[in-house]
Amino acid sequence: MDSLVVPISYWSYWANVVYILGMFGYLTIDTINYIFKSFNESFSCFIYVFLAILFVIDAALYTIDWYMYAIKFRQNKNEPIEYEAELVACLFQNLGSYFYLISALLAFNKSRFVKEILLYNLIGINAFLMESGFIFLGWRISFRRKPSTNPKRGCVPQDVYMWAFIMYTVASLIYLCATTLAYRIYTTLNIVNPNGVLILQMLGDLVYLFDAYLYYECWKRDKQDYDMNTERQRLIALNLVKQLATENLNYDIKTDDNE
């Protein structure tokens, strides 16, 4: 049995679903804003606020998921709580999500708060980068603490988790470049949302969307592992019951023969 198999949580399933929907929404609205320069700005702001709220919910779902596998489902309640790095990652994810929500709300008065919006976006994306680092750190610590018997797990090309972490980091770096570029262009040239920034954002959206799909594949793999592990334990328990029943039957037969 793989020691890294943990009880599957549907909180992570819904977190992945929200992640996919949110990134599809960001890619769509960013593309529309790039193609149609005269797109209704107020409606666009409402969409961005809605998407930011989605990611606040998403961060909360991932935090609940951490609680489920790190605290509620841990095998020995007396042992210290593990997965501390993942908890820090959740905190950074929540922090980044709220900063993006604040910047989305300020966008309703963009002409007044452009600099603040870009600054909050910069803080938010740095928080997501910190999150990605702690997620990878926690993943590595887990494998060092409980090495997997599966050769396709760990820092190997066959592990979907590794690619999910890489894609998340790459997407965050792209967004960091876009946000930094937007901030520099605005402070030096007083230009808001130049085409280069929008293109970088759309590229980041694509990578994030692909990353969301990878995380969904990770969830499906974890669910398959958990189902197989549960079935294996059920069969072991069933065989044990059959063995005990057979032994009891043989004992009864011997007792009857002796009488």
Rank of each mutant, 00 (worst) to 15 (best):
L244S: 15
I191P: 09
I141D: 06
Y48R: 11
Q93D: 13
L198C: 08
D205F: 03
G22S: 13
Y48G: 01
L21R: 08
L240H: 10
L61E: 02
D257A: 11
M23S: 14
Q243I: 09
K146G: 00
L27S: 15
W219Q: 05
L238C: 07
E217R: 07
F136V: 04
Y67E: 12
S38G: 01
I53E: 03
L119D: 00
T28R: 15
Q75D: 07
V5H: 06
F128G: 01
W11K: 13
M162S: 10
L27E: 11
I71W: 05
V88Q: 13
I29W: 06
V160C: 08
Y48D: 03
N258D: 01
S132G: 15
V160Q: 05
F134L: 13
K242I: 07
N248P: 02
Y168A: 09
I135F: 14
F210C: 10
S172G: 11
Y19I: 10
Y183K: 11
I141H: 10
A237V: 07
F46C: 10
C218N: 07
Y213G: 02
I123W: 01
C177L: 11
K242C: 13
G204A: 03
Y34D: 07
S132K: 10
A237W: 07
L203A: 08
T63K: 13
I253T: 07
F113T: 03
I117G: 01
T188K: 15
K115Q: 09
P151V: 04
D58Y: 12
V56G: 01
K146W: 07
M228T: 03
I64R: 15
I81P: 01
V192E: 09
N76W: 06
N40E: 04
I135Q: 14
